[in-house]
Write a protein that binds this DNA or RNA. Structure first.
Lengths: 245, 245
DNA sequence: CGTACGATTGAGGTCAATCAATCACAGTGG
DNA sequence: CCACTGTGATTGATTGACCTCAATCGTACG
């Protein structure tokens, strides 16, 4: 079950500067020398297969991870209730920010499809951050951005209809794909309807119905997990628009 | 109930070591010298009256604030919908973490009652954090704890009944009062029913009804904004318990 | 004492969860 | 090559929870 080190070990050091995510990733803005120090603390990238766990809730916390390719979900189990999906992680996003300062992992993170991640041992990252103000700033920004994301999420969940939640979700995904250089209008949903439902606080049947309704209304096209946004503006005005609370 | 402002404004420098919140606040764990440096960057405490704004959404971001006494709420206005309450801040808690790295404030923060706050200009805090690993760690921990708090909140909002949300909310408040040395079983709700409703994603009428029901069932006592928890375990098992998603 | 605001209480309607059946698809083995 | 099986997705019918609208009550404050 342990994630395999995938690439020919010894092939050497990871090279952030060659990574396609370079412009979107944690070491953004680091100088050449700093980037090299950063490279040096990255453990060999790990490869994960679908439904394989990267971290398990309750395990000792040791590292942050940056998604290099593929996607993952975080689930949190609370006392006496079903797991809840709390995050989807796309390439360039950082796993584990919500566990900094804790001894044990706060949720489980599982691959939704084949995925690569870079491991950043946290103590080494902290040491490095002491010397690199840029990196420190990046860390703060990441944490704070995550806070804003969660708050937006809270607003979505609170007193909004299933349609509005779904519209916001799709637009959010679209935006995230766009900033990563993928098509914002046509993408693959790597998560199941059930995952989406858990994430949005809806029953999976509702997810299915809403997607169907959106398609009927010509706002999107769905075929299985392939999704096309056909009327961005309609989705947008639905998400923001009047209606909810 | 109200910790008094230790000194009148103008009396000079704030002294963290004399503050009753010393053990719960941001500078926790700083050595004597470090604490003095920390003191030095605190602007004179600000006093706020009920419903007075500490920060307004969209203002330039300059500082974090630590609540010294009283309580505040954060509200976020999103396009085309009513304001939503996203946080309540109690003594010892840090306002503004979700705006680090942004140019403009992410939400408005308003006093729910008379309150004192300590202002920490962020750039000076950052400079200081460069020299004080302990402080850096505290900042990370605060940010990360906040993330976990928000995620717990997301779980509350998602697919849980009004009763469960309210029970969780009351227990959460109770816990926060407890760690601050106030009574965990008998406290004052400084926020209106409407604020609670907005925070929990419920109509204010529902808030009222649920509180009434809880009282009927003997789990709590409510008289206006004075609240007594009478059956902690019942609340707890309701909050955690079976039922929800 | 009157006003205003917040809180309570009641009645009715709507949305989404639940239960349940069916369908589509991929992987497996005969 | 095709039935078999399991998982995920869709669709329908029913039920219940919570929002809305609306009236009333209580308290603080002028």
């Amino acid at each position: 079950m342990k994630p395999q080190p995938a690439e020919r070990p010894g092939a050497g050091v990871t090279r952030c500067e060659r990574c396609t995510l370079h412009a979107r990733c944690l070491p953004l803005g680091l100088e050449f020398d700093a980037l090299q120090s950063f490279d040096a603390i990255i453990r060999l990238p790990q490869s994960l297969k679908r439904s394989q766990a990267l971290v398990r809730q309750g395990e000792p916390f040791t590292s942050l991870y940056v998604v290099r390719s593929g996607s993952l979900k975080q689930t949190v189990a609370s006392a006496g209730q079903r797991d809840q999906v709390t995050h989807f992680y796309l390439p360039g996003e950082v796993v584990g920010l919500d566990t900094i300062g804790e001894a044990y992992c706060h949720g489980s993170v599982v691959a939704l499809e084949s995925a690569f991640v870079c491991e950043l041992p946290f103590t080494r990252l902290e040491d490095l951050a002491e010397r690199l103000p840029e990196l420190r700033g990046q860390l703060y920004r990441c944490l704070s951005r995550e806070l804003r994301r969660d708050q937006r999420m809270m607003c979505w969940l609170s007193g909004r209809t299933a349609d509005q939640r779904m519209a916001s979700f799709l637009l959010g995904l679209s935006e995230r794909f766009r900033t990563r250089g993928f098509s914002p209008l046509c993408f693959h949903l790597s998560m199941s309807r059930s995952d989406i439902g858990s994430y949005l606080g809806l029953a999976l049947e509702t997810v299915s119905r809403v997607l169907g309704r959106f398609q009927e209304q010509g706002m999107i096209g769905v075929a299985g997990r392939e999704l096309t946004i056909k009327d961005f503006d309609a989705l947008h005005s639905l998400a923001e628009g009047a209606g909810g609370a």
